[in-house]
């Protein structure tokens, strides 16, 4: 599915290998070659085995531990789905998912909207296109720790924007989201949008530029005005890319951890706790490996709820395309 996504969004982003460059020397056959061959094959089998074992093994291992009473050390006695039912009833887990819903929705909507807007505007033959693109995308090269730290300063009421505006003379100015239980989750949205909007722009720009120029020409010949061209051509053609970007951003939101830790540390109180921070808290703060693993498995299930339907949708629409030629 990754391949499908990549090929759809970044059509030809990575150029195909050049052909016919390798010149083949006359094959040598002496005893050394076969030894090297055998070792190379062994290495390849091992590499593949490690890659598969890592994914399957670690997933099953964590799942297994989630059904046990492991605390600081693993303890492999089966206790059923106890941790799952308990976790679903704890307030912190419910708050974490409520926060994820607000954050995920806000982040998806704003990052997509800003990304699409910037992509369309940058595609108007503007000057300094490269410079602008570089500026929009550079946050993606930064660590979330850096982003979170810097935004925590800017949003700090004493030392940040609020302090600055008050220093200018507007002493009644207030911008204290970071320390406000109801608003703190929106600071996470803000910082995440700052980090990822340029990325959404890059995906949309690649999509816009891969559209077939003939579509526009045909519409122009038909006498369609620019507004109608947006509606009739751009919107349907961009629709699959918008969905792809939404899915990518949503799974990015579900996995968000470092940003919250650096920006708000889950606070004030538990106002910006996310499922990822709860997992960490259970595993390493409270030393509840079994319960923490159950939380991690639920996190994975949340991801699958997004990704599996999307993969099926992709496969169906690919099949439809083939059928209709």
């Amino acid at each position: 599915m990754v391949a499908i996504l990549a090929s759809q969004i970044g059509h030809g982003l990575v150029p195909a290998p050049e052909q016919g460059r390798a010149r083949w020397p006359r094959a040598r056959r002496f005893w050394g070659v076969t030894a090297v061959e055998q070792i190379a094959k062994l290495v390849a089998v091992l590499a593949l085995a490690v890659a598969v074992l890592y994914v399957v093994g670690f997933t099953l291992w964590t799942t297994w531990i989630s059904f046990t009473d492991s605390t600081l050390l693993p303890n492999y006695t089966f206790v059923g789905i106890k941790h799952y039912t308990r976790l679903l009833q704890t307030r912190i887990w419910q708050v974490a998912y409520a926060n994820l819903a607000i954050y995920g929705f806000g982040f998806m909507v704003f990052a997509t909207a800003i990304g699409l807007l910037l992509a369309i505007l940058i595609d108007q033959k503007v000057r300094a296109e490269n410079l602008l693109r570089t500026i929009y995308l550079y946050p993606m090269a930064l660590s979330f720790v850096v982003t979170g730290t810097v935004w925590s300063w800017l949003l700090n009421p004493g030392i940040g924007i609020q302090g600055f505006v008050r220093g200018l003379g507007w002493t009644g100015f207030s911008f204290g989201w970071l320390v406000d239980r109801d608003m703190a989750i929106y600071t996470v949205v803000l910082a995440a949008v700052w980090q990822a909007s340029g990325f959404a722009m890059a995906l949309f720009l690649a999509g816009l530029r891969s559209l077939d120029a003939d579509l526009y020409k045909a519409a122009q010949i038909d006498g369609a005005g620019p507004a109608r061209m947006y509606l009739r051509i751009l919107v349907p053609a961009m629709w699959p890319i918008v969905i792809a970007v939404l899915v990518i951003l949503l799974q990015f939101a579900i996995k968000t951890y470092e940003l919250v830790r650096a920006l708000t540390a889950g606070g004030p109180g538990i106002a910006t706790t996310l499922p990822t921070t709860v997992v960490y808290d259970y595993m390493f703060q409270r030393g509840l490996m079994g319960a923490g693993s159950a939380a991690a498995v639920m996190l994975l299930l949340s991801l699958l709820v997004i990704i599996v339907p999307y993969a099926i949708y992709r496969r169906l629409s690919a099949r439809r395309r083939i059928r209709h030629g």
């Binding site: 598969v52 964590t62 996995k255 390493f284 490996m289 693993s293 939380a295 991690a296 996190l299 991801l303």
Partner: peptide, 15 residues
């Protein structure tokens, strides 16, 4: 192997 790309880091912490 591709599935490993999706796997959240939290699934790997305990192992």
């Amino acid at each position: 192997i591709t599935f490993g790309v999706f796997l959240p880091a939290q699934m790997k912490l305990v192992p």
